[in-house]
Amino acid sequence: MNRVLYQFPISHYCEKVRWAMDYKGLDYKLKNLLPGLHLRTTKKIAAKSYVPILIDDGEQIQNSHVILNYLDEKYPDKPLSPQDPTLFEKALEWEKYCDIEIGVHVRRFCYHYLLSEPKTVIPFFTQGGPWWSPLFFKLFFFKLEPIMRKVMSIDEAGANKSEIKIQQAIDTLYAEYEQREFLVGDQFGRADLTACALLAPLIMPQGYGLDWPEVMPAKLQAFVDKNDKKLERFRQLYSEFR
Rank of each mutant, 00 (worst) to 15 (best):
K138R: 09
G185S: 11
F136Q: 08
T194H: 11
D155S: 08
D225I: 05
A175M: 04
L210V: 02
L173T: 13
T172D: 04
P205V: 07
N227D: 10
A169S: 15
Q168N: 12
W212S: 08
G207A: 03
A157M: 11
I164H: 05
A222E: 12
A175R: 12
L135D: 02
D211G: 01
Q167Y: 02
V224E: 01
Y174G: 00
R149F: 06
F140S: 06
L173R: 04
A157G: 03
E214R: 12
E163M: 08
G185P: 06
K143L: 14
T194Q: 09
A218I: 14
K165T: 10
A191Y: 01
N160S: 15
E156N: 10
K219W: 02
E214D: 14
F182H: 06
V151Q: 14
A159G: 12
R190C: 10
E145C: 03
M148P: 00
N227G: 10
S162D: 13
I154E: 10
S162M: 02
Q187I: 02
Q187W: 01
S162H: 07
S153R: 13
R180C: 06
A191W: 04
E163N: 10
Q168V: 09
Q206R: 09
Q206T: 09
P217N: 05
M204R: 14
E178F: 01
M152H: 11
N227Y: 14
D211R: 10
E163H: 12
L183W: 02
P205Q: 08
P201R: 05
K150G: 07
E145A: 13
Y208H: 15
L135H: 00
V184N: 09
L199C: 13
G189A: 10
A175I: 04
E145G: 03
C196M: 12
L202K: 10
L139E: 07
L139Q: 10
A222T: 13
S133Q: 09
I164R: 07
T194R: 11
A195L: 07
L144N: 03
F142Q: 03
G207V: 04
A200F: 04
E176M: 06
K226L: 03
R149H: 05
I164L: 05
F136P: 02
I203P: 07
E163C: 09
G189S: 01
A191M: 04
P146G: 06
N227W: 12
A169K: 07
D186V: 14
G207K: 00
I166H: 12
V184D: 12
F137K: 04
Y208F: 15
L144R: 08
Q168T: 07
P146D: 10
F182Q: 02
C196P: 03
P217W: 04
D228N: 15
M152Q: 09
L139R: 13
E163L: 09
Y177M: 03
P217Y: 11
